[in-house]
Amino acid sequence: MKLFFRSLIGGILAILSILPFLFLGLSLYDAFPNIYGILALGAISILSLWIAYSIFKLIRKRGILKILSYPYSSPEADNLKDK
C-alpha cells in the first residue's frame, strides 16, 4: 500500500513537473513555427520527460517526506538561549 501511494504521488508530481516545460516548448513553437521551433519543442519535451522520470523514481524509492525534510539536524539551533 505504501508503494502505491508513493507511486501515485510520484506520478502526480512528475506530471506537474512536465507542465512548465511543455508551456515553454509550445511558446517557442508559437514564436518560431518552423523546423527550429519543432526541434526546440522536441528537445524540451525530452528534457522534461527525463526530469519527470527521475522525480518519479526518487519519490518512489525514498518517499515524499524524506525528500522534503532536511536530512541534517542542528542541535545548536534547537536550544536557543538569549545571551
Rank of each mutant, 00 (worst) to 15 (best):
A14D: 07
D30N: 08
G10K: 00
K83F: 04
S73P: 09
I38M: 10
A77G: 10
G63A: 13
I15P: 01
I55A: 01
A31P: 05
P75Y: 01
F32Q: 05
I15V: 10
A43Q: 08
L13M: 09
P75C: 00
L19D: 03
L13V: 08
A31Y: 14
G10P: 08
N79G: 01
P20A: 00
L19Q: 05
W50F: 14
L28I: 14
S73A: 13
P71N: 02
I38V: 11
F23E: 12
D82M: 03
A77E: 13
S54H: 09
E76D: 14
S74T: 11
P33V: 12
W50P: 00
F56M: 07
S48D: 05
L49C: 10
A40I: 00
L39E: 09
S7F: 15
N34V: 09
L41W: 11
R6K: 15
P33G: 09
G10C: 06
K81I: 05
I51Y: 12
W50H: 04
I35A: 14
L39M: 06
K61D: 05
A43E: 03
K83S: 00
P71H: 09
D82V: 05
I35W: 14
A77D: 13
D78F: 14
P71G: 01
I9E: 12
R6W: 09
N34K: 08
M1P: 15
P71V: 14
R6D: 12
D82Y: 09
I59R: 04
A14I: 02
I44R: 04
F23N: 02
F5I: 15
S45V: 13
W50A: 14
Y72E: 11
G11K: 06
Y70E: 14
I59W: 07
S45W: 09
K57I: 09
L58C: 13
P71R: 00
W50N: 14
S17Y: 01
I46D: 07
L26I: 15
S45Y: 03
L8K: 07
L22D: 05
Y70F: 14
L16W: 14
K81E: 06
I55V: 03
K81G: 04
L3Y: 13
S17V: 07
P20I: 04
G11W: 06
F4N: 04
A40D: 06
P20E: 03
I18K: 03
P71Y: 03
G10D: 02
S74Q: 15
A40N: 03
I15S: 00
F5W: 15
K57P: 11
I35V: 06
K66N: 02
Y29F: 11
D78R: 15
Y53P: 00
A52Y: 10
I38C: 13
I67K: 09
I67P: 11
I46H: 09
Y72D: 01
R6M: 12
L41M: 13
L49F: 07
D82T: 04
P20G: 00
I35P: 06
L3T: 15
G11N: 01
F56S: 01
L8E: 05
F4G: 07
K66S: 13
G63Q: 08
S17G: 10
L24V: 12
I59E: 04
P33S: 01
S17R: 11
I64G: 10
R6I: 12
Y53C: 02
F5C: 00
G25F: 10
I59A: 04
